[in-house]
Design a protein around this nucleic acid. Structure first.
Length: 507
RNA sequence: GGGUUGGUAGCUCAGUCGGUAGAGCAGCGGCCUUUUAAGCCGUUGGUCCCGGGUUCGAGUCCCGGCCAACCCA
């Protein structure tokens, strides 16, 4: 980013000119009387205010000038007049650039066209911008720049900023919800000698002083369960997981996960928790339980109307969802359906009665991709993932998954080939799994050893020792926060809810 | 990993059949004291992603590479 151009050179020259006049263009401090929004909200004709922010527009009128100043709260118009400021300050003011930060003092008034504004009496330059901002009307459209230099995206596209402010609210409301129910928030290690709690490829790193390798965590689970053993009965963590796998619209190598565990709970109590929590968050952040699907708007400058800039997402791109309802209705109660019933519905009532070979053939005929080395349960799993999950737009708890899929959950007493688990699917994606957690240390060891099977992953022996000390029966959930945000904020790509999504470094 | 699309001024984008590189915004200069995508006049600004090739001549055609988005695996 060390390219220069004439615009940067001009701004550097202006900076030097300001310094030559004895002005410091990078002030340490300026104390506004309030935000731009507050100034507008507490309007009184002639009231003296001071605001600070970035100049985002200017309209010069000869011996007077309007500029827009923006802070996080919004925009405020400032009206400057040469005869009020005086020749020298006016000259400085007139040569301010878009992107500069200023502090402005003056009295509130309303213009002819009815806009609340400040009649400028004095100003200071708080920070000179040496690079020009993106174009004011179209905003910033280049996806690569938007993701690599998100500050420009936030600066130029108010819709984008709004999404991230709301993501912050979502996480705050999740915390409020869990704290109100007596859950304790904790932090557990991100660097783990044995990455456990999920089946995923980890990132590896090395600790010099200890002289050993660590892995970045792929899940929070095993440490939170140690806390159940230790007597923290209601516990949660919101934190980053890392998985060394492919990137896509739905996957970022680092992503944010909520896991919560409740002693003496089970998968049913956790379903209630998930349903109540997501409804609570939707009410607080989205103002209701009906979420417009794919309401993602093309980022553009604030007052923009529809433009046909090239990166609007085509309806036909969102394959199975395209013909689905456009409103996600989170109103309780949510549908609950057994995994096997959903599979039978889609793949034939006798699906679980026919031979594994025939299942494989049928799965293939249905259009699922079946690798040669898939075990029988994986064949069914592929059918579920490919043909069923994408159709679950409205919130659905899929329960009673085959035990092979979930080694950390307890068997269902009424069907021991399945486990007491749910996958909460919304918007065609798995958003939140939950289990009745396995607390039998001997059973747990067998299941983990069986799962490790092929690649012989190391077992987390300390976790098993902890279970041997006794873990209370418990329910647990995990919620992919990024995907929850996608659903609640109408975004089609995980990169649009992660501030700095992973991209390949550019030379 | 495979396919599709894209990469041109600071930004948003045009660029016809291969024939001197274009617009709007931003910038600079001029006019303008209630504008709001202010307006009017003038004007600066280019490694056409990178590297090869074809050609008298390549932003454009061919080959290779880089980056991104989307789709598929």
């Amino acid at each position: 980013m060390d390219e220069t151009n004439s615009l940067i050179e001009q701004r550097k020259a202006k900076l030097a000119a300001l310094r030559a006049r004895g002005l410091d263009p990078f002030k340490n401090r300026f104390t506004p009387t309030g935000t731009c929004a507050e100034a507008r909200k507490n309007y009184a004709e002639g009231r003296e205010v001071a605001v600070a922010g970035r100049i985002t527009a200017h309209r010069a009128m000869g011996k007077s000038m309007f500029i827009d100043v923006r802070d996080q709260s919004g925009r405020l118009q400032i009206y400057a007049q040469k005869n009020v400021l005086g020749d020298e300050p006016w000259n400085v003011f007139a040569h301010l650039d878009l992107g500069d930060f200023i502090g402005a003092r003056g009295k509130l008034f309303t213009t002819k066209t009815g806009e609340i504004s400040i009649k400028l009496e004095s100003f200071v330059i708080l920070a000179k911008a040496l690079r020009p901002p993106p174009e004011k009307w179209h905003g910033l459209a280049d996806t690569e720049i938007r993701y690599r230099r998100r500050y420009l995206d936030l600066m130029a596209n108010p819709d984008v900023k709004e999404i991230f402010l709301r993501r912050s609210e979502i996480i705050r409301e999740i915390r409020n919800f869990l704290h109100a129910r007596g859950y304790v928030e904790v932090e557990t290690p991100m660097m783990q000698a044995i990455p456990g709690g999920a089946a995923a490829q980890p990132f590896k790193t090395h600790h010099n002083a200890l002289g050993c390798d660590f892995y970045l965590r792929i899940a929070l689970e095993l440490y939170l369960k140690r806390l159940l053993v230790g007597g923290v009965d209601k516990v949660f963590e919101i934190g980053r997981n890392f998985r060394n796998e492919g990137l896509s619209r739905k996957h970022n190598p680092e992503f944010t996960m909520l896991e919560a565990y409740q002693a003496y709970g089970d998968y049913e109590s956790m379903m209630e928790l998930v349903e109540e929590m997501i409804c609570h968050v939707a009410q607080k952040v989205c103002g209701g339980l009906k979420i417009e699907k794919g309401s993602a708007r093309v980022p553009r400058a604030e007052s923009g109307v529809a433009s046909d800039s090239g990166f609007r997402r085509d309806a036909e791109n969102s394959t199975p969802e395209a013909c689905a309802p456009q409103i996600i209705d989170l109103t309780s109660p949510w549908r609950r359906a057994k995994y096997k019933d959903l599979v039978r519905e889609k793949a034939g009532a006798d699906w679980f009665e026919v031979s594994p070979a025939e299942r494989r053939q049928r799965a293939h005929d249905l259009g699922a991709e079946i690798a040669k080395d898939y075990e029988d349960f994986e064949v069914t799993g592929a059918v579920f993932e490919k043909l069923i999950e994408p159709t679950l737009i409205q919130s659905t708890f899929v329960t009673h998954l085959p035990k092979e899929l979930v080694p950390l959950a307890k068997l269902s007493p009424d069907d021991p080939t399945t486990v007491e688990v749910f996958e909460c699917c919304i918007n065609g994606q798995e958003i939140a799994p939950g289990y009745t957690e396995q607390n039998d240390p001997i059973e747990q060891r067998e299941r983990l050893e069986h799962q490790a099977g092929g690649e012989q992953q190391k077992l987390d022996e300390d976790f098993l020792v902890a279970l041997e000390h006794g873990m209370p029966p418990a329910g647990g959930i995990g919620i992919g926060i990024d995907r929850l945000c996608m659903m609640l904020l109408g975004q089609e790509s995980i990169r649009d809810v992660i501030l700095f999504p992973q991209l390949k470094p550019k030379s």
